[in-house]
């Protein structure tokens, strides 16, 4: 297990390296520097030259990349081009907001999906089952920004029940409801589907019949025998779900003007603020790789068959 973990952690390095390389190359393939964005406020040539030298933009590309990597390893991502602050400082400001939003949404998604999926599997073709199928269809097909717009229209504009701008101090419950629910919805929908399917699969297995043949109560059969097996595939979905939360945060934070790194990312992209784009991209890649790694470790803990092979 320990060896396996170490090997997996080492495998992260090339992945992150390539992510950095790709982002770097793409960023530098883009035409136009960061300073020529605004035609009206053209910087004097002297100042632009100084800035270019300061950011190392006059070096050959491979050198720039190595220079960047060297600093990135020490967690120095430079300064934002648009705002005169360090990238770390800007990200550190937005990250707690995004993290809170993401974790809340993930918990909510699990809280909805697990019971709903299990109950739908146990009561196939019941009202609950059709309800969860409906939720799953809506949540996986209707784009989340469309759902967000509908929510904003109904609860914000029409009924005036919930505020829909900003995030507050992270304790403002009413302000957090809509963003959290909408961010959770696609994941909840997907997880419900997976939970239902894998629970159904588990319930149809021979070992469940064996358990019943021993005279165990139905509750014991479901919880001890079926559920533990059913949760194994569900656990693997948490990796993609993390990725979904990250991309979802771009949309949700933009729509609700939440000052997290998702919105920061979209703003920086429109402003071609490369130091922020690159640092954030690397951060995302890191988070996703970590999520996938933890899924594998959890998988090993849930399924005794994995340990021997690893």
């Amino acid at each position: 297990m320990v060896n396996y973990t170490i090997r997996r952690v080492l495998l992260m390095v090339p992945t992150l390296f390539f992510v950095a390389l790709i982002t770097f190359s793409l960023a530098h393939a883009a035409p136009g520097g960061p300073f020529d964005k605004d035609e009206n406020k053209k910087l004097p040539q002297q100042i632009e030259d100084n800035l270019t030298r300061y950011y190392g933009l006059d070096e050959p590309l491979p050198q720039q990349f190595l220079l960047y990597l060297g600093k990135a390893v020490q967690l120095d991502f430079g300064k934002s081009i648009q705002r005169n602050r360090s990238v770390n400082e800007i990200i550190a400001q937005g990250l707690p907001v995004t993290a809170q939003l993401g974790i809340q949404a993930l918990l909510l998604a699990l809280l909805i999906a697990l019971p709903l999926g299990i109950v739908s599997a146990l009561k196939q073709n019941s009202g609950v089952d059709y309800g969860s199928l409906f939720l799953a269809t809506i949540g996986t097909t209707i784009p989340s920004f469309v759902i967000a717009i509908l929510f904003i229209y109904i609860f914000g504009v029409w009924l005036r029940l919930l505020p829909f701008v900003g995030w507050g101090d992270g304790l403002d419950f009413r302000r957090m409801i809509m963003p959290t629910v909408i961010l959770a919805l696609p994941g909840a929908a997907f997880l419900t589907r997976i939970t239902r399917a894998s629970m159904l699969e588990a319930l149809g297995q021979d070992y469940v019949r064996t358990a019943r043949s021993k005279g165990l109560a139905e509750g014991t059969v479901i919880i001890r025998h079926a559920l533990k097996n059913a949760l194994i595939p569900v656990a693997t979905i948490v990796g993609p779900a993390t990725a979904g939360l990250i991309t979802g945060s771009f949309i949700i934070e933009t729509l609700f003007s939440i000052p997290g790194i998702g919105r920061l990312y979209i703003i920086s992209i429109n402003a071609r603020d490369y130091p922020i784009i690159m640092a954030t991209t690397l951060l995302y890649a890191f988070l996703i790789v970590i999520a996938n790694l933890s899924v594998d470790l959890v998988y090993g803990a849930l399924d005794p068959r994995i340990k021997v092979e690893a």
Binding site: T15, F18, V19, I22, T23, L26, A27, A29, A30, P31, G32, A243, G244, I246, T247, F250, Y265, I266, I269, N270, I277, T281, Y284, A285, I288, V289, N292
Partner: peptide
């Protein structure tokens, strides 16, 4: 596959679109 799968599709699309839009 390993590298691209480490990345959500939408994030990848955003990077490509964002960087090559001006070309």
């Amino acid at each position: 596959v390993d590298i691209i799968y480490a990345f959500p599709d939408l994030l990848f699309l955003i990077i490509i679109m964002a960087t090559l839009r001006g070309t």
